[in-house]
Amino acid sequence: MVQIPNSAAPATPQPRSVPTSADVARLAGVSRATVSYVLNNTSAVRISEPTRRRVHEAAKELGYVPHAAARSLRAGHSRLVLMPAPSVPIGPLYSRFINELQWALSRLDYTVVQYASVGLRGDEAARAWAELRPAAVLVPVGGIGPEGVAVLKRSGARAVVTLGTERIEGAHSLLVDHAGVGRVAGAHLYARGRRRIGVVVPEEPGLKVFSKPRLDGVRSAVEGTDASVTVLPLAYEEESAARLAARWPELGLDAVFAFNDEYAMLLMRALQDAGVSVPDDTALVGADDLVLGRLLRPSLSTVHIELPAGRDLAELVDRAVRNPGAAPETHHVHEATLVHRDSS
């Protein structure tokens, strides 16, 4: 029998040891306590700027990252803020707000994690979020009910903040007055002499929570007048907009509130392609005041919504985490103003 000699197996590289705070302390020439104070942004202890710089440089050189779980044990709670991904498209305005909020939370030494809870809703979603033991959860529109809030709090969440159109029991709330957005648009169109007003209602799933109060707001703005309101279902597709524009002569509308700027831009293009002049034949108003709307021709009239600064909401989260027994706060966003441009 022929024996085949074993070939020398390649040497397996030994795993590198994970750097510790003690390693950082030795390299920086400080105590481990000082490393902890510096890297955890502890404000109760005064440390000179040169020392802070040495600690940060040593940590960077060694590739040291503070252990989140250990820090949570010291604090008695995690520094994790969970932001479940919304189940509905939230648009550029809210995306910008969420980005600012995440930045502000990170400045307060929280770790922000986005959770893609596809297929999970309500209390089931709350139980999935609770498994991560976050210090706080920021819940998008329609994502949770009172029982879900209770599930999160029983799991140790110190703050639950909802972003939406109605207050949820037990949670801090940021409420946007979408009916007010519709009222502002409807009042503007009526003041411009328009009497046959269409209101776009998106067909996309999940947007009814926004579109219904905006429709109700337009109706309330012209209630008791000689104006009429026509509901215009519209999918966010060129084909859907083209079909709606083809029906324009039979609809007989002289104005339209298009839900938001994105739907307004979609519909404007379709109306112009169908030979409908904006604003001569039909005045058009969007909402959210996106930059692109200013660049259209005609430039787009819109409803500007003044959302709170992300920093303010981050401070609300921080207050709630530090004082979990405090009564839930409710903040209303009422500042909706009409920006009049060429389309109306």
Rank of each mutant, 00 (worst) to 15 (best):
Q3L: 14
N6V: 02
S7A: 15
A8F: 11
A9E: 08
A11W: 09
R16A: 08
V18D: 10
P19F: 03
V24I: 01
A25H: 10
V35A: 02
E49H: 12
T51F: 12
V55F: 10
E57Y: 09
A59V: 03
P66M: 14
H67W: 10
A68K: 13
A69G: 09
S72D: 11
L73V: 04
G76I: 04
G76M: 06
G76N: 02
H77F: 04
V81W: 12
P84F: 08
I90P: 03
P92W: 02
Y94F: 15
R96S: 13
F97A: 10
L101F: 01
L101A: 03
S106V: 06
V112N: 14
A116T: 09
A116W: 08
V118T: 15
V118W: 11
V118Y: 15
R121N: 01
A126D: 02
A128H: 08
A136S: 02
P140S: 01
G142K: 03
G148N: 09
V149K: 07
V151K: 15
R158K: 14
V161E: 08
G164D: 08
A171I: 00
H172A: 02
L175A: 04
A179N: 05
R183K: 14
A185V: 00
H188T: 13
Y190A: 14
A191R: 15
R192V: 00
P202F: 09
E203D: 15
L207Q: 11
K208L: 11
V209G: 06
S211T: 12
S211F: 01
K212S: 12
R214I: 00
R214P: 08
G217Y: 01
S220F: 08
E223F: 03
G224I: 07
D226I: 04
D226R: 05
V229S: 04
V231T: 13
P233G: 11
P233R: 04
A235I: 04
E237C: 01
E238Q: 15
A241C: 03
R243T: 08
A245F: 07
A245W: 04
A246C: 00
A246W: 01
G252R: 01
L253I: 03
A255I: 05
A255G: 12
V256N: 13
V256P: 12
A258M: 07
N260E: 07
D261E: 13
D261P: 11
Y263C: 06
M268S: 10
A270I: 00
Q272T: 02
S277L: 15
T282L: 14
A283V: 00
V285S: 11
V285D: 10
V285K: 12
G286E: 02
V291F: 15
R294N: 10
L296I: 00
L300E: 03
V303W: 06
I305L: 15
E306T: 11
P308I: 00
G310D: 05
D312M: 14
L313K: 09
E315T: 09
V317R: 02
V317M: 06
R319H: 14
A320V: 00
R322K: 13
N323H: 15
A326K: 08
P328R: 07
V333R: 06
S344W: 03
